[in-house]
Design a protein around this nucleic acid. Sequence first.
DNA 1: CGGCTTTGACCAGCGC
DNA 2: GCGCTGGTCAAAGCCG
Length: 592
Amino acid sequence: MEERSMKSTGKEESTSMEINKEERGKHIEEEEKSSMPFSANGNSLGITKQVTLTMEKNTVDLLSRRKNQEDQLKLAEAEMGVVKEENERLKMLLERTVKEYQSLQMQFFDILQQENKSKDTVPSHRQAKEEPELVSLSLGITSTEPKKEDKKNNNFSNGQEEEKLNGALSLGLQDCRFEPSSTEHVRNNSCSNNSFEEQKEEEPTEIWPPSKILKTMKSRDEEVSQQSQVKKTRVSVRARCDTPTMIDGCQWRKYGQKIAKGNPCPRAYYRCTVSPSCPVRKQVQRCFNDMSILITTYEGKHNHPLPVSATAMASTTSAAVSMLQSQSSTSLQGGLNTSASAPISTSSNLNGFNFTLSQNPSPQQLYGLPNSSISTLNSHPTITLDLTTNAPSRLSSSFSSAPRYPSTSLNFSSSFSPYSLEPNNIFQTHWNKGPTSYNNHGTVPAYNENPIGNLNSIEKQPFQEQLYEPYMKESIVAATKAIASNPKFQSVLAAALTSYVGTSGGGVKENQGACESSSMKLKWGESHTMNPIYSSSQNGIGCGSSYLNKSSSFNSLKQGGLALFPPNSLQLSASNNCASAAPPDNRDHFKL
DNA sequence: CGGCTTTGACCAGCGC
DNA sequence: GCGCTGGTCAAAGCCG
């Protein structure tokens, strides 16, 4: 534009100069006229006029072009303004859409969580049917909804008696009960432990065809004896964890990832790299229903010395496996109907606490782990260690189905003081608080992460211990009986408790040093002493812990800097006297 | 450059 | 036998 204007200006100037030339020429011509009367005056005059006209035309054209260009410029500017406005409008729209999306997402998750709570009662039973063997250790604290509880109680008023007839081993020290699952709930839910089951099958709307159920029922007895012993036993740990993988003290190398059926969350496969020949594998997968839950399934036994921080989980899994194997063998020996071989049956269903222990499950009953899942391959006996806080819904599941395999459910949730020793907090502290704990690392590798948690960030779980307190003594008595009756259970309980203590303590000792260890002790101790209202739950803890205190292995753990529990918190009251109930012969089960 | 992760391909088991 | 699914392998890419 500027160049054009420049050019046009130049032309104008040249034009004016030419005009001047014309004038001068006119004067010259007039002079020539006077001096030279007979020259070619006529021709020169015509040419001059044509030049003048041409110049004028050019000038007009230039001016008109200039006007057009200015108009175009204005138009372009106007268009740009319109586009800018539209841009801003779109931006606003985008922002609004994003906000709406986020709000809707939040609502969606809320609804999902609510639905999960209500659904969890159903699908758990599915697992037990197809799962060859299932031992569930539920260490999460639970808050049971009154409605569910009432419904549960109504439906299974006879459940306690049924439990006595069952061979399942169920221990619940919280407001949760493991109840025989209904026949139609053969399969587990998606948050499943070991197999991370299909989401579709978790849907409450899904009902198995009767034929399928019958088929499953028929074939169950035949499969029991064959499968459970042959296949590798797995230990599944469900815990709330923000990190990609649970920090268990071992070194893992990821060797594969796959989208499992029914769960959009990919399942990652890790193998132990502490020793090249170590056969231990683990699978890690997010629970589809609750993305905060990380399901880790361990398989195999380490053939090498483990770091201190890794011994806890290894001990837990090992003990659970041994317990499961023992259960399966017992069930095989004892037969389906008789309890003669192991006439141990303890049931204590209290308000807020359920403690049942029974053996030789009848084929008609099954203790399903409400949040557990069945492997579609039905090839691996699985032990589920449930460290989530979703136990309530799981525990509100209903009795019903006939267990094909011995299933053991251990639930200690309420036995831990939620404020000070609540297991979920502990695990979250070490495994779940990844973002806070591992910020220094930037990322969280899949191996040997520092299991130290930010104790200051321990969340105070809603606690209903007051409700349980009046019933605690009774439940503890039942627990005492159960523990005294089943050595394997003792070992599992011990290992589970050890895992809490050991994992945290070991990790502290190994990776962080005494400084944080001491702070952890202080934290737990303080919270414990400052919440006398939870004395009952402390007793619950003490029940297991006091026994542990007498075990050599636990003592060794304590000596190893793992004595994180204040002595009082781990001691049973004399009235409960859990420790005395535990047979000394079973102490060796803690040696893992 | 070595170790780890990613990811598609491959294999085996199981059900129909 | 075929298809589905879980589990593993291994080449390529990434990262410190």
